[in-house]
Amino acid sequence: MTTTYETPDMATGRPPGDLSRLLFGHLHRSDQQRWGHVYLQGLMRTHGKKTVRRMAAVVTGSEAASASLHQFVNASPWEWAPARGELARWAARSLPVRAWTLAPAVLPKRGACSAGVHQRFLPESGRTVNCQLGLGLFLDAGQAHVPVDWRLFLPPRFTHDEAVRDRAKIPATTRAQPLWDHALRLVQDMTSRSDGRTAPVVADLTSLCDVMPLVRRLQGGGHAHVLAVPGQTTLAGPELPPGERESVRSLLLRRGVRHPAGPGRQVVSYDTPVRGQRQDGEHTGGAGRLLAEWDAGSGRPGRIWLTNITDRHPAELLELARSPRGARAAIERMGENFGLLDFEGRSFPGWHRHMTLVSAAYAYSTLEGINH
């Protein structure tokens, strides 16, 4: 007797046929299209750990089909970028998008062979983990945060050592990049897919990288943004003598203006220029603002954000700055219910294909929940 792993409530869900055809319609082989649909259904319908064996049993009734699912994700030569482009456009048409949110996903791994795996200290938990670090772009619609694109952080050994590169199937054109550059490329790719309809970029990457290069590139590229910055970051404020700089925390403490932000809440802000850098290296500038929720108990600002959006009330911007919380909650749900942590391969292409399918499964389920 074949063991199944499907729960009754999952089994009643409408199969995502339309989305599957949209994502895999560019594939020339019908077997690839079929296995893409099976994998997508397996992620949505299989209870517990999403191994290819369990997913094959749920969707096809035969655990033997797991070899074909494994082949489809890890070895079948299909490109994930077109599928992500279709996913992004489909989600953008279906949601009232208010922000593009960047959020990291720490994926614990065993061993040292999986693409991008490395030791990383996590300030939030105070421990070091063996992990992959993915960075996702989410469409924030307030009540939903839908992932549409991913980048995988690669330590230098994965691109400098040819044997390691070959074992992880990392393309020869792929280079190790700082995390802020991955963030910038996610925004650039989304811009190219959005037909000119952009949204403010919101992120809190302060525990992972220097965010000021990202601020400068987004500013130089004309992207609206709300980015968390460390309190010790220094800026040249308009009230400071030429050449002098002051920390953003000090600027808000000494020169900030407080605004009401609801019952018992205040937001403190300080207007300051934002420096930018275009792709050709030319420096630009524009109006900007520091803002933070005011902690009345300590008499200090909380998490500090830098933005170039100056035509909206600081309290409204602070609400937008909560977007990374929603993206982090989405990542947690993807890990619990949609197989984010269950990839059974080690290769760079396999990781990207799995993340594409997990994102599609989560996006479909989320939008179905909103619309029904």
Rank of each mutant, 00 (worst) to 15 (best):
Y39D: 04
T173K: 10
P96W: 15
P263A: 15
L69C: 08
V148G: 05
L235I: 12
G281Q: 02
G126C: 09
S94R: 15
D204T: 00
G36A: 13
L341M: 12
H118D: 11
A67G: 06
Q71L: 03
L235S: 11
D18I: 04
A88F: 15
V226W: 01
P301M: 02
P16Q: 01
M355Y: 08
G299K: 03
L186W: 01
R157T: 10
G13A: 13
K49G: 08
H118G: 06
E162K: 14
R197T: 13
Q219I: 06
T7E: 03
P156W: 01
G285M: 09
T272V: 14
M212H: 13
D210R: 09
R34H: 12
R110A: 15
S192I: 01
L152V: 07
F72D: 01
G13I: 11
A75D: 01
T307K: 01
W351H: 12
R110D: 12
A88T: 12
A327D: 00
W80S: 15
R325N: 10
W78Q: 00
C209F: 08
R29Y: 04
L43E: 04
L22K: 10
P147M: 09
G285V: 04
D210G: 00
L179M: 09
E332D: 12
A112D: 14
Q232T: 13
R322K: 07
S247N: 04
T366Q: 13
D295E: 14
P155N: 07
D210F: 03
R312M: 07
W78P: 02
Y364K: 10
V52D: 00
S323K: 09
V148E: 06
V58F: 11
T284D: 09
H225W: 02
L214Y: 04
E293A: 15
W305H: 03
Q177F: 07
A172Q: 13
S298G: 12
R312N: 03
S194D: 07
R127C: 09
A330F: 00
R185H: 13
R328P: 00
E63L: 05
R278W: 02
H283Y: 07
P301W: 05
D31P: 07
R322V: 07
H118L: 10
A360R: 11
G302K: 13
E368Q: 14
S365T: 14
G299Y: 02
G302Y: 05
T2A: 11
R127M: 04
V38A: 12
E244L: 12
L341C: 09
P147Y: 05
A144L: 12
I304C: 10
V52F: 10
L318D: 01
